[in-house]
Design a binder for these strands. Structure first.
Length: 641
DNA sequence: GTTAGGG
DNA sequence: CCCTAAC
């Protein structure tokens, strides 16, 4: 019934309270210890995550390992390096017959992981056996993977028997049901961590010499266990250490990783946020530089660090991760899980946040992060939509984001997903589109209009990029709701870009010359003057759609004016500067000024001090006299103080 | 509506 | 330059 999900949380204090004191003797040898604690969470029958009660937490805190026998809850303990040593010193209570499991799941930096409590062998051979050190091998890893798969196939039946462990092994079977009062149910699923772990069989104490570690030898004294584990029953632990480089992961995988890490779903679609969260979650209370664990192509790869440790390279199959996750979700359908998580979230400003204090703490942890921009979320929602409905795909950036994600089916597969739709008028007719996909807060998606407006244009300018890419006619648009995907996709960003760029030449002919540039010194270096035909600040196409502003190189006089303006009005007073000094340059917006100033700062600080060679410019960029750059610097410095 | 910053 | 969160 109950499964275990570890949720990262900063419970370090809690850990350190107990752990610190106990492992003091080893602290010197405990180089690698990255104490990361996890929040205790219970997965209730309906798949929801129930935060551990204080009692439970307390329990784990006070007793290092208590797996209560005959208890309806099992507290699994997965030790970190430090704690691993600690385990050897303290009693470990393992019990069978637990209906719910509260597990401490380790995070990155943890030396070894007890992956699946359900396989009691893991406990026996893993926790008890410290003597017979089996270097971790890939072969072994394979074994474990197979084993895990097998166990999953067999359901929980296999692992459900939690044999009592021999007392002499320093692990005591405690039958007292002191801590858990809930109804007793024969436990079916114990620890089912989403990730498959490999265990470093060797206990730290062994590595760290240390005669003080009695328990270690005690454990080792159990020949049976040793032999047992020496065989194919090696525990499934993995050393996970270092940083996860999530950059290459598709959003879905990130979400999945997020879930594996935090034990809960997330619907946040902002990659940056997810990465940050995951990274933070893994690193969290660790003040250890992170560099090692990388996620590559659905694999978690732990790079070799310069630690003296036996094994650090562990390749953890993400597939396993997914599988395990599925198993975890199994009792309730994926849809359910989705629905649940969605139901439990608030929508704040378009982002889905969780009400849990968890989130706020997460947020606090980050150094004030810029909210993920809507745009990304929207784009990604569109991706979701596509994944759901589409069969007709126009290759797009969005798509590439999510392809290769084995995970996506899990979290998106819900056909039941409630889709609020709205009517969008497109090409004179209304089509129904999912609401989330196209909520634009600011100005309307230009490209839609551009497409519309361009359509006629395209007809005229046959062979234009837009034409070839948008394989539909207005009639198609209007009549076929089924087509809406292609419509949406066409309307989405990638096409827009393509249109904007490749069609630019056409535009130039199309656009009427509204405003000649009156700029006197518009003899700019790039020879723009010849092909600049629309100098209105807001270029407008026939359909009234906005298009990307034509690039306009900054002239020296403009730069000079800008500098002048900054010195006069101060940096930041862009609108002032614009009003006073750029009134004749309608095409320079205050934002432009700001951007230019930013660039000026960059260049000035970049090259003025060292390169006395005035301005070695990059190709194409304007030559800015040293004098001006110096002025910029000076202003900047004055500004900063 | 402006400004700040990331992209 | 664009986009958008934050003022």
């Amino acid at each position: 019934m109950g499964t275990v999900v570890g949720t990262v949380e900063d419970r370090r204090d809690m850990f350190e309270g107990s752990a610190q004191t106990m492992i003091t003797p080893f602290s010197s040898t405990n180089q690698i210890g990255n104490p990361v604690a996890y929040k205790l969470v219970r997965v209730s029958g309906d798949g929801s995550l129930v935060p551990a009660t204080d009692e439970e937490i307390l329990e784990v805190n006070e007793t290092d390992i208590h797996i209560a026998s005959d208890a309806c809850q099992t507290v699994g303990y997965l030790a970190t390096d430090e704690e691993n040593s600690e385990v050897n010193e303290t009693d470990v209570h393992i019990a069978s017959d637990a209906c719910q499991t509260v597990g401490y799941l380790p995070a990155e930096g943890i030396h070894s992981r007890l992956s699946q409590l359900e396989s009691s062998e893991a406990i026996n051979s893993g926790l008890l056996q410290s003597d017979n050190v089996q270097p971790y091998t890939d072969q072994y890893n394979e074994e474990m993977l197979l084993k895990v798969e097998k166990e999953e196939r067999l359901g929980n039946a296999h692992g459900s028997q939690m044999p009592s462990t021999p007392p002499d092994a320093n692990i005591q079977c405690s039958n007292e049901n002191n801590f858990f009062e809930e109804d007793q149910v024969h436990h079916e699923a114990l620890l089912q961590e989403p990730v498959s772990f490999s265990m470093n069989v060797q206990n730290e104490c062994k590595m760290n010499e240390s005669d003080k570690i009695e328990p270690c030898s005690n454990a080792a004294a159990s020949p049976k266990e040793t032999a047992f584990s020496a065989a194919a029953q090696k525990p499934d632990f993995s050393r996970v250490r270092g940083e996860i480089c999530l950059d290459n992961l598709p959003i879905k995988a990130l979400q999945e990783t997020f879930r594996a890490t935090f034990g809960r779903e997330t619907t946040v679609k902002d990659k940056t946020w997810l990465k940050r969260r995951i990274a933070m979650g893994l690193i969290n209370s660790c003040d250890v530089p992170t560099t090692n664990l990388r996620v590559k192509d659905s694999k978690l790869v732990v790079n070799q660090e310069k630690s003296n440790d036996v094994t650090n390279v562990v390749s953890k199959d993400m597939g396993d991760d997914v599988r395990a996750t599925k198993t975890k979700d199994a009792p309730s359908s994926t849809d359910h899980v989705n629905g649940h998580s969605n139901a439990s979230g608030h929508i704040l400003g378009g982002n889905l946040y969780y009400a849990s204090e968890d989130y706020s703490s997460e947020q606090r942890a980050a150094k004030r992060v810029r909210k993920p921009t809507r745009r990304y979320i929207e784009e990604l929602s569109e991706t979701d939509e596509k994944q759901q409905n589409d069969k007709s795909m126009i290759p797009s950036k969005d798509q590439s984001l999510s392809e290769k994600s084995e995970v996506r089916s899990i979290s998106v597969s819900s056909g039941k997903r409630i889709t609020v739709t709205r009517m969008v008028s497109l090409a004179g007719s209304e089509i129904e589109v999912p609401y989330v996909s196209h909520v634009r807060r600011s100005r309307p998606r230009e490209n839609i209009m551009a497409l519309m407006g361009c359509h006629s244009i395209c007809l005229e300018n046959k062979g234009s990029a837009a034409e070839s890419n948008l394989n539909f006619s207005p009639s198609q648009l209007s009549s076929e709701v089924v087509n809406r995907d292609s419509v949406e996709k066409s309307a989405s960003r990638p096409v827009q870009k393509e249109f904007a760029t490749s069609d630019e030449n056409n535009e130039e002919h199309i656009l009427s010359e509204v405003d000649q540039d009156m700029e006197p010194e518009h003899i700019d270096s790039s020879g723009n003057s010849s092909d600049d035909n629309n100098d209105t600040g807001v270029p407008i196409m026939q359909g009234g759609a906005l298009r990307r502003k034509h690039h306009r190189a900054w002239t020296l006089s403009e730069v000079t004016k800008l500098v002048e303006g900054v010195s006069k009005y101060g940096a930041g007073k862009w609108s002032e500067i614009k009003k006073h000094l750029f009134s004749s340059h309608s095409y320079r917006t205050s934002v432009d000024l700001k951007d230019k100033w930013r660039n000026l700062l960059k260049t000035s600080f970049a090259q003025s001090p060292s390169n006395s060679v005035g301005s070695l410019k990059k190709h194409g960029s304007m030559h800015i006299p040293m004098q001006i750059l110096l002025r910029v610097r000076e202003l900047a410095e004055k500004q900063s103080q």
